[in-house]
């Protein structure tokens, strides 16, 4: 009997009874699979099947016998089955909105898990009619496999295992500034998806500091194969991964923070507030214009953004920013003279 078939049959057997099923009975029920060899070999085979079922989320228990009941294997239905998850239709819709977006990423550490999880909450919400709205949006729930990025997917899968098991990883990393590939041994703390790009936050043994690596620039990766069940490192207490990854170009930590004020004119004022207003210390309204006050650690990182808006963004302070923007316009003018 094929493995998939055997596993499902075994599950059917255990789901259809409330009493523990002794191994001898399982052997009899599957003579071709467990009966055709020594009891020891059969038991080993059964243990592997049990591990497969556990990986599927199935709580298969062994119960020792006593005066009241037999010894044997048992699945408790209340632990097996999806519990009632009471989500409001609004909440279900929000999970789908977020979930479908995550499923269409070119790679994700949880693509297949998320696909099933969304289906499960939709099932728990009731029949298709009750939960009908969940699928009002996408034509397909997940991305089409060929639209994905297989190398990125593979790296994310390996990092997911390493992060959960806390195992060190060796990276072949293409550094952008040096434009060369180097080997780095790192302790992977976690992954951050920001603006559609995956970042690895890790302790780098070469640099002896916490560093951020762009997944796109990882050329190769291997997880420490030694002692797979023993963690190589601890996750530092209080570390917030998202704070480690630079958000905006002007938030790259190259200088002590200064406050910069920029005035955005209509029609871009509203869009500017929506796009990075949440990173501003303060947003002032001045007629139709908006003045955003930003905390800046790299003025050079801010100049391109101001230039992008051209005449619709005016730097107000600090003077250094105003000068750099003006100097940039002079260069642009000369370049096009």
């Amino acid at each position: 009997m094929k493995r998939a078939e055997r596993l499902l049959d075994l599950l059917a057997l255990l789901l259809n009874t409330r009493r523990p099923v002794p191994f001898s009975e399982i052997r009899e029920a599957f003579p071709e699979d467990y009966g055709d060899c020594s009891e020891e070999a059969a038991l080993r085979k059964f243990e592997r099947d049990k591990a497969d079922l556990t990986d599927l989320g199935i709580p298969l228990e062994y119960q020792a016998g006593d005066e009241l009941s037999d010894e044997g294997y048992l699945i408790r239905r209340e632990r097996y089955a999806l519990p009632a998850v009471k989500l409001a239709p609004e909440e279900l819709a929000m999970f789908f909105l977020a979930g479908v977006a995550a499923l269409h990423l070119e790679a994700s550490p949880f693509h297949d898990d998320l696909l099933l999880a969304l289906n499960k909450i939709s099932w728990a919400a009731g029949s298709r009619e009750d939960a009908g709205r969940d699928f009002a949006l996408p034509r397909s729930l997940g991305r089409v496999p060929q639209e994905g990025n297989p190398r990125l997917q593979e790296h994310l899968g390996a990092l997911r295992r390493a992060i959960v098991a806390r195992k060190s990883v060796t990276l072949s990393y293409h550094g952008f500034w040096r434009d060369e590939v180097s080997q780095r041994r790192v302790d992977p703390y976690g992954l951050v998806l920001r603006r559609g790009a995956w970042h690895l936050v890790a302790y780098c043994h070469t640099r002896r500091d916490i560093r951020v690596f762009l997944l796109e620039r990882i050329r190769g990766l291997s997880v420490n194969p030694l002692k797979p069940k023993t963690p190589d490192f601890e996750f530092p207490e209080g570390l917030k991964l998202s704070e480690r990854v630079a958000r905006e170009p002007w938030e790259i930590r190259s200088h002590p923070p200064v406050r910069a004020r920029i005035r955005f004119e209509p029609p871009v004022a509203e869009a500017a507030v929506a796009e990075f207003g949440h990173r501003a210390c303060q947003v002032e309204q001045d007629g139709e214009s908006r003045i955003l006050e930003l905390e800046v650690t790299s003025l050079d990182g801010l100049v391109p953004t101001v230039l992008w808006y051209r005449g619709r963004a005016t730097p107000l302070s600090p003077p250094e920013l105003c000068e750099r923007v003006q100097a940039a316009w002079r260069r642009i003018g000369e370049e096009h003279a």
Binding site: A12, L15, N16, D55, L56, G57, I58, P59, R79, Y80, A81, L82, P83, M94, F95, A98, G99, A101, A102, F110, D113, L114, L116, A117, L118, N119, K120, I121, W123
Partner: peptide, 21 residues
């Protein structure tokens, strides 16, 4: 044959849902 309810969330299914949410 008693396959009338889905299996409970696995660890990674629950994690995926929370992370996406």
């Amino acid at each position: 044959q008693s396959f009338d309810r889905p299996v409970n969330f696995t660890l990674f299914e629950a994690l995926a849902l929370v992370c996406a949410g």
